[in-house]
């Protein structure tokens, strides 16, 4: 039989709880809403861009409108969730790179998969770079999209450039998003963390040891 810690005891001593809080409700909803909007953008883009899909569905004016509004709305969930202290704290963690992040990146570059050479706090260095790049790329897509939408705002050469950047960045973003989703598919506990807000202690110990250690020592 599994020996579960007594709930009364773990309430008093959270370091013994089997599950560790990872994401607040505001963060999870911001992630969910962003994912849905991004999904709408990607799917409508595919129907506008890929000839086989365009022939399948047509309705170009409608698809364009849905794509535009989903794109405009894309930053809204995260901006709204900036009111949450948990999200702001996580943004700080995502921003700052320590010596362990350099070790993690070096190991990633050398395809060194040993846990010991990939130290990570709440977010590993790969997740940090993904977050920063995805945020920047989303805003570039939004800016270039607006230039293509409101054609009178900018001169033609800018618009042609915006189309070029929007097309190629869309392709890049698609590949990177596929990587993001692929890694989540390969890690059910990470997905559970984003779905329920908490993760198994063993998982945190394995994937984010510096984070767990700090949680213990700061109590």
């Amino acid at each position: 039989m599994n020996r579960r810690p007594d709930p009364r005891q773990t309430a008093a001593r959270p370091e013994l709880a089997p599950r560790v809080r990872r994401f607040s409700a505001a963060e999870r909803w911001a992630h969910r809403a962003t994912a849905v909007l991004m999904g709408v953008c990607v799917v409508t883009a595919a129907f506008l861009y890929l000839p086989a899909l365009a022939e399948l569905i047509g309705r170009r004016a409608l698809v364009v409108t849905v794509h535009q509004w989903a794109g405009i709305a894309l930053p809204v969930p995260v901006l709204a969730a900036l009111g949450s202290r948990a999200l702001r704290a996580d943004l700080t963690l995502l921003n700052r790179f320590g010596p362990h992040d350099r070790r993690w990146l070096r190991a990633a570059l050398h395809r060194d998969k040993r846990r010991s050479s990939r130290p990570a706090h709440k977010f590993n260095a790969g997740q940090k770079i993904y977050a920063a790049w995805a945020a920047g790329a989303t805003l570039v897509m939004l800016g270039t999209g607006l230039m293509m939408w409101f054609t009178h705002l900018t001169p033609l050469t800018w618009r042609t450039g915006a189309t070029f950047v929007h097309d190629w960045l869309a392709l890049t973003l698609g590949v990177v998003l596929a990587g993001h989703i692929g890694m989540a598919m390969g890690d059910p506990e990470a997905r559970r963390g984003m779905r329920t807000g908490s993760v198994a202690r063993e998982w945190a110990e394995r994937e984010h040891p510096l984070w767990l250690r700090e949680r213990k020592s700061s109590r």
Partner: peptide, 21 residues
């Protein structure tokens, strides 16, 4: 703590992406 300090690399990547765009 290994966090809370360190270089603001995230911000640089974010701004760099905007600049490249």
């Amino acid at each position: 703590s290994p966090q809370g300090r360190g270089a603001p690399v995230g911000r640089r990547v974010f701004l760099g992406t905007l600049g490249l765009g």
